Amino acid sequence: MPNFVRIILAFVFLGGAVSLFVFGHWGWGILALLIAIVIFVTFFFNENMLIAQFYLRKENMDKAKQWLNKITNYERQLIRAQHGYYHLLIGLIESRTAPLQSEKYFKKALTLGMQMDHNVALAKLSLAGIAMAKRNKREATQLLQEAKKADKNKLLADQIKMMKDQMGMLDKQQMKFR
C-alpha cells in the first residue's frame, strides 16, 4: 500500500475516533484511535521490513527474503529514510548465500544513508570482510577503522577485533607462501 494512502486512512480513522468520542461511544472511539495510531506508525516503519528484521534475528533467511520481496518498489513504498536500511537488509541476506555479490547492496546502503551509527558500522564491517576475501588488505583496514569509528556504542567491538585478528592471520599465511 502506498504511503499517502496510509496517511489518508490514518486520518479517516482519527476523524472517526473523534466523532465516536463526541457521540459518547468511548469504547469504539478508543479502538478507532488505536487503529489510527497503528496505521500512522506503519507510515514510518514498513511492516514488511519489521517482519524481515524479526526473521533475520531468528536466522530464518528464507522467510526474511520472502518478506523483503513483498516490497516491489522500495522508492514508492518506503520513506526516504528507510531506503538505506532496505539495501542493508538485502545485503545481509545475500551475504549468507553469495558474500561477494552482497557488496553492491552494502555500498548502496551507505550511499543512501542510514541514521543509526551502528548500522553504518555493520555495513562497513561487512564491506571490510568482503575486501579481505578479495585479498585487498588496504581497503579492509580502512573500512575496519571507519567501522570502529562509527561504532560509538561498541556493539560490534568483538566482531571488529575478530576481523583484525583474521587480518593478522592473513599476513602470516602470506609470509609462509613466499
Rank of each mutant, 00 (worst) to 15 (best):
G24T: 09
Y55L: 05
L78K: 01
N73V: 14
L9W: 13
S126M: 12
H25C: 08
Q115D: 10
W26A: 13
T72C: 09
V41I: 15
E139W: 04
I79A: 05
Q77R: 09
L89N: 00
L14H: 07
Q173C: 06
V5Y: 15
F21Q: 03
T72W: 13
F54I: 12
F21G: 03
G113M: 04
H118W: 08
Y74W: 11
K137Q: 13
M49S: 04
E139R: 05
V41T: 11
Q142R: 14
K164Y: 08
V38C: 09
T97L: 14
L33N: 02
A109T: 01
M162Q: 15
Y105H: 10
K152D: 05
H118M: 07
A109C: 00
K107I: 12
A121D: 02
L89A: 00
V38P: 01
L156P: 03
Q159V: 05
F11I: 14
E139Y: 05
L143C: 02
N136V: 09
G15C: 12
A10F: 06
M114E: 01
M132T: 09
Y105R: 04
K65P: 05
L14I: 14
A123C: 14
I71L: 07
L68E: 00
K65C: 10
K124I: 08
T141P: 01
T111Q: 13
F106T: 00
K176M: 09
R138H: 13
